[in-house]
Amino acid sequence: MKLDAIKAWFRQASFYAEEAYNAPYRSAIARAKREQDDLFMLLVFSEMMGVPNPASYYTLELQPLLLERFHDWHQRMGMEHSPLDQFRCC
């Protein structure tokens, strides 16, 4: 019983500590991660936009996996509509 109470207190304390640590910087870190992901998207879809990519054989495999993010990505990159000719998301 007592052990449970201590455990519950510990969980509560770690929750507050984690939040206190992460809350102020959540957006800055998420933004930095998004920038890295954006670069990765460019690498994966580069061949389709006419930029030669020696690793395209491998990145081709990744394209379906990243397709879900594609629309958000091209809009974020300042292209209102899909830049691809073969298939369009919008």
């Binding site: 809350a23 959540r26 957006s27 998420a30």
Partner: peptide, 13 residues
């Protein structure tokens, strides 16, 4: 959006 707009516990905030 999980980036800028995140509802946060008022004590943490």
């Amino acid at each position: 959006d999980g980036v800028d707009y995140v509802p946060t516990n008022k004590y943490i905030l």
